[in-house]
Structure formats: structure tokens, C-alpha cells
Simulated scan of single mutants.
Amino acid sequence: MMTFRSSVLSPTLLHHVFWNHKEKFQYSVDTYEHWVLFAVEGGSFRYGIGNSEGIAQMGDVIICPPGIDFHREVIHAASFHFIGFSLDSLSGGLGNEGQEDEHNVRLRLAASAYKPAVTHKERLADNLRYFKGQDEAAAQIDQRIYWQNHALNDIWLFCLQSIAAGSVNEDMQPADPLMEQAQLYIRHNAFEDMSMLVLADELGISPVQLTRRFTRSAGMTPSRYLSHIRLEQAKSLLVDTELNLEEIALACGFNNGFYLSRVFTKMMKISPSAYRKTNRV
């Protein structure tokens, strides 16, 4: 197995943009002068980097080295963090040792189709929250950037650990057509009163088999997948409409506004009202 000294290299944040429900990329192909990381929170898009192709969806991280064409096409309106960063040796710059490590990272990323397997999805979500801060007083900007760099380094670390261990991402695993059908069913019925028991019956498998196979295929349980889709819709309605919480809850498949508020606050670490206030332009 190829190894590299992951501690030698450290990312430094250059810029960050969060795109919410982006329906189309401005450019279908782009090439960056620095490293870029796409962390997907919702929706999906096709991508091609070098000789690799794949699909990025919620919970995925795509890393593209500098100087390589990045092809992309939105499948479902995508919400993602676009993070640009430099990659340097902790001793400063990239000497011969650092260049060798960067070369090894590039090779490993290519082997993983530029999508390291993210086994720490909750940890990833926690780190990404540091990138969602709004305008702050000048005195707080340095502190926010410090914590964003800390979060970026943690994301980079577990991505390196994944590719160093030879973890295989879902694009390199045999597809599970039945679970692809399950994902499609959930997406089409997410805003209705749906039951996982009914879904399992429709697929001809037990609820336990559904949970195990779906988790193996999508990286999360079917219930979590459903909640994520509903919350993405709730986030969109909070920002783009004047609907009250009860109306949004019913439009997203939740029983009532109180339950939506409880789930939203638990998963997003912010209340719906606070999210609406901070995300409106």
C-alpha cells in the first residue's frame, strides 16, 4: 500500500462560498489554480476530474487538485460548500518532501475518483457549520477564520485517513439497484405521509434489510435520508417564502410546526426562525 506522511501537509483556507439550491453551474468545465473542495449538503451533480467520473450527493466530499479540468453538471438542485485552499508543508512552502507527499495525495485521490469515502458524516456536518457564519464585527473575523481553518484541517485529515487506508467510495462499490429504487421512491414521496414499512414491503424485503442495505449504499439510514430531503425543502421555504412554520411543516411532510422546529433545531443546531433571519438577504 502506498503511504504518505499526512502530517507534513496542511491546508490553508483561501475562500469559501455556500451555494444553496444551485440549479446550474456557471461553467460546465473549470480549472483552478489552487486546491478546491466541494462538500455537498443537498441535491446532486455529476462530475468528471481527469479520467474519473462520478456523482456527488449529500454527505459527499469532492477534492480537485490544481491544474485539472473539473467537469460538472447539476442533477438535482445542489446545495454545497465551495472551499478553495492552498496546501503547504508545516515547515512552510512545499519542499522536495512536501512535493512528494502532494504527489502521493494526488495519486490516492485519483484512485478514489477524487471522492474520499466519508465515514464521519456527523463530524463533517459539525465542521461545515463553521463556514455558515454571517457578517460579523471586524474584531470577530479573525476568530471566525481561525475556526474555519481548524474545521478545514479536520476535514482534510479524515479525507487523508480514508484514502491512506484505501477506503473505497460508493462509486467503486457494486451498485445496489434496489436501493437506488428506494432513494428514488423516497425523493418522490418525501413530502407526503410515507412509511418505511410500506417502502420495505414495496421492495419485497424486510425493514431490517432495508435499513442495512440502504445505509451501506447511501451512507445513512433511509429515515435520515428522508429527514435530510425534508429539511432541505424547509430551509428553502424559510428563505424564499413568507409561509409560517405550520404551513412549511405541512408542505414538507412534517406533522406540525412544533415537530418541524424540534427536528430542525436538533439537526441544524439552529432554530427555524433564526435560520430564516440569518439567511435572508
Rank of each mutant, 00 (worst) to 15 (best):
E192S: 15
E202F: 11
N189M: 06
P222D: 06
T211H: 08
A182P: 00
S236I: 02
C252S: 12
M194Q: 09
L203Q: 05
R230N: 09
M194P: 02
F214A: 13
I205L: 03
E242T: 14
L238R: 02
L260F: 04
T211V: 11
V198S: 14
C252G: 07
E242A: 14
L210I: 09
A249M: 08
L197V: 13
Q183H: 03
A218M: 14
K235V: 00
L250C: 05
R187S: 08
L197C: 02
I229P: 03
L238H: 04
H228V: 11
A251G: 04
A200M: 05
L210D: 08
A200C: 05
N189L: 07
Q233V: 05
L178P: 02
L178S: 10
Q209K: 12
E202W: 07
E192G: 10
A249H: 04
V239M: 12
P207F: 04
D193V: 07
M179C: 12
L250N: 07
F191S: 03
F191K: 09
N244A: 08
L237V: 09
C252Y: 03
G219Q: 05
L231A: 07
H188W: 01
G253R: 10
Q209F: 02
V208W: 08
R224K: 07
Y259N: 13
S236W: 13
F254P: 00
